[in-house]
């Protein structure tokens, strides 16, 4: 089985845009060990020459006319924004001096 190291947890946490304090990290490490062991079972199945299934319906390329619809107003769009000046969405400064 894949070894779940502290380094692996750190890498996955970064890719997931999550942080864990020491206690949480110990817990997630145990959880990951149990979960990876659980899905490891799939290796027992012989899948030689089996193509991966990517789509479960025969539907392909469902298009509609390119007409603007279903849009919401700026006021509505900003309704759930945590920080806004009423026109823009505010985020921490991204360009350093």
């Amino acid at each position: 089985m894949v070894a779940i190291t502290d380094q692996l947890i750190d890498d996955l946490a970064h890719l997931s845009r999550l942080t864990f304090d020491d206690a949480e990290k110990a817990a997630i490490k145990t959880d990951m060990e149990q979960m990876v062991q659980f899905v490891e079972k799939l290796n027992e199945v012989d899948t030689t020459n089996v193509d991966p299934l990517l789509h479960i319906t025969p539907n392909q390329n469902i298009f509609r006319e390119d007409i603007v619809e279903g849009s919401i107003s700026r006021e509505e769009a900003l309704k759930n924004v945590p920080k806004t000046d009423g026109t823009y969405i505010l985020v921490p400064k991204v360009i350093k001096k």
């Binding site: 799939l42 290796n43 199945v45 899948t47 193509d51 991966p52 299934l53």
Partner: peptide, 14 residues
């Protein structure tokens, strides 16, 4: 090892 493998098993199930 995991994701593509699971997709293959999904085809067997289908």
């Amino acid at each position: 090892a995991y994701f593509a493998k699971a997709q293959q098993i999904r085809r067997l199930l289908s």
